[in-house]
Design a binder for these strands. Structure first.
Length: 577
DNA sequence: TTAGGGTTAG
């Protein structure tokens, strides 16, 4: 009979099956007197896709004395539901009750904390784990480490890792991925190397994913290539997710063709994310026709585009100025049963704005079914600056202030609109507002990889060992550029300083420092590749175009939004960005 | 009977 109950459980594929089985248990008296069966039923209802959480809760409420396993089933089910905070509440009730809380209860509750980004609760569970004597449990420690990383407390994650008596590969993976996702990619790569070289551990699929993601962020091509050959040697490229990450890495390191060849030569099956990754890579590089071609191909290959595919395709149109194609794509989303989200609206508003169709962009914002976010108003404001639309710029700025924006760039844009009409009183007013509001400036920085070493520069940086040579090179560049009629775009600097100082502020932008360092530290003709955390500034764009011509170098700059490939005085973005 | 680490996005 036990066997038949278990096989019936296995066959439950919907809630009505579960209800039938429950009725059977109730009628035969087993619901009360055979608690292990009831627990199995509850677990199925709470955790599997056949079940239903509110129904599971109703089963739970009928239990006279719920066991630890009954509680665990509920906490586990809620932890993976769209409302993970409920799992934390249930766990708290459990802790207040007579039932023993075991390592599994803690594990499920921690999972919920990770999903709900509940740092305080994670800390509380941590101390409970220590008090209960579960401390040495490696699985629990790894979960703990992972939760700390996911809620953004990397220091605690590292502490858990350091204090682990025994560390298996999952522990290393959790910290490598945590560092990579927590904007500490350099440390992620260092840990990855330490794991291999010092501990002699063999990275697996999950390890390389963390390491590749770190390389993508840093644009660390040399390290990325090494990981790619390791992947091939170890046959980890039979895993689709790994291949997706390799494609992404090459794309973000500036090598579209390499990304495409990995995509074309995959030995394993392509999934939706594979297509999306490749589309996004083409979009980032301004290769709109290839992105759109792939978008069509995926449907033919039997993979239906999702919201990310559409966003990638829209973004491709955006970067290439294909306004009509973009609008058509946006409108066709609903035909596929997809509802545009705020990012799709953001993309199409940006697209129209850049094309100077400000009114349409504004109308779209007004007709959106959801609340427009900061990025949307920033796009519109940027377009207003480009096309000198004071009225709409004021409107967008007002919205941004209402939304609590304290971002320097938002004020600077408005000020620039006024400045272009020589409305100095208004410029002064904006400056005053900035002073009052204590606006924040996100520091700009750039990376460049030379001989496998990553060099980081901050605006006006003098920390690099070769900073004197770098500044001397910039002086030389400046001198040479004068012959091409270069005049610094000082209007984009908003500081209460003289014209010459303004020029200096501009002239030592991190991307210029990185390019200058590239020129002095690599041999003639070698392409230079730089990565910047913010959008490239207008003046740097002009200067780097000239450098590519004067020094006959191909220079690739990845900024926050896309790639710029400078060659012989031209940029692949066609000055449209 | 149920545990830990994973790819794409304005």
């Amino acid at each position: 009979m036990a066997a038949s109950f278990d096989s019936l459980l296995l066959k439950c594929s919907c809630l009505s099956h579960i209800k039938q089985l429950q009725a059977h248990l109730l009628i035969t008296g087993q619901f009360q007197f055979c608690p292990s069966r009831t627990t199995k039923l509850l677990d199925l209802c709470a955790v599997s896709s056949a079940g239903d959480l509110s129904y599971a809760a109703s089963i739970f409420r009928r239990l006279l004395t719920p066991s630890t396993n009954d509680w665990n089933a509920m906490v586990r089910g809620l932890a993976q539901s769209p409302e993970p905070t409920k799992a934390i509440s249930w766990f708290k009730s459990m802790c207040g009750g007579p039932q023993k809380v075991d390592a599994l209860s803690c594990s499920f509750a921690l999972k919920a904390c990770a999903r709900a980004l509940a740092r305080t609760e994670a800390k509380q569970i941590h101390s409970r784990i220590t008090r209960s004597g579960f401390g040495p449990d490696v699985l629990l420690q790894t979960t703990l480490l992972d939760v700390y990383a996911k809620v953004g407390d990397l220091d605690c994650a590292e502490k858990v890792f350091d204090e682990m008596g025994r560390r298996d590969i999952a522990a290393w993976n959790a910290l490598i991925a945590g560092l990579a996702q927590g904007s500490r990619p350099t440390e992620a790569i260092a840990l990855f190397k330490r794991m291999k070289e010092e501990e002699g551990l063999r990275p697996n699929e999950v390890t390389v994913l963390g390491a590749l993601s770190a390389c993508s962020q840093l644009g660390a091509l040399k390290e990325g290539e090494k990981i790619h050959s390791y992947i091939t040697d170890e046959h980890l490229d039979m895993n689709t997710i790994v291949c997706n990450a390799v494609i992404d890495m090459y794309g973000k390191c500036g090598f579209v063709d390499k990304a495409h060849s990995v995509f074309d030569n995959m030995k394993c099956r392509k999934c939706l994310v594979t297509w999306n990754t490749m589309i996004v890579v083409f979009a980032m590089h301004g290769e709109a026709s290839k992105a759109l071609e792939l978008f069509d191909q995926m449907t033919k290959a039997g993979v239906n585009p999702d919201a990310v595919s559409y966003l990638g395709a829209l973004c491709a149109c955006n970067h290439a100025g294909l306004v009509e194609d973009g609008v058509r794509l946006f409108d066709s989303m609903r035909d596929c049963g997809l509802v545009p989200n705020v990012k799709h609206y953001g993309s199409v508003v940006d697209l129209l704005g850049r094309a100077g169709r400000l009114k349409e962009a504004y109308e779209i914002i007004n007709s959106m079914p959801m609340f427009p976010d900061v990025v949307l108003w920033q796009s519109l404001l940027g377009a207003c600056k480009t096309y000198g639309n004071v009225e709409m710029a004021e409107l967008a700025s007002r919205k941004l202030v209402e939304m609590g924006s304290n971002h320097c760039g938002d004020f600077v844009l408005l000020s620039n609109v006024y400045a272009s009409y020589e409305r100095w009183d208004d410029v002064g007013r904006v400056r005053e507002a900035m002073r009052k509001r204590d606006v924040k400036k996100i520091p700009g920085f750039s990376y460049i990889e030379v001989d496998g070493v990553i060099h980081k520069f901050i605006n006006g940086d003098q920390n690099h060992v070769e900073w004197r040579q770098i500044y001397a090179k910039l002086d030389e560049i400046k001198f040479k550029m004068k012959a091409y009629g270069y005049v610094a775009k000082t209007s984009i600097v908003l500081h209460d300083i003289g014209e010459e100082d303004k020029e200096n502020v501009l002239y030592y932008h991190s991307e210029k420092l990185a390019v200058a360092f590239g020129l002095i530290s690599t041999s003639e003709g070698t392409p230079i590749q730089v990565i910047k955390n913010l959008r490239i500034c207008g003046d740097c764009h002009v200067v780097i175009k000239l450098i590519s011509k004067i020094y006959n170098r191909e220079i690739v700059v990845r900024d926050r939004a896309r790639f710029h490939r400078f060659k012989q005085g031209f940029c692949s973005c066609g000055d449209y960005w």
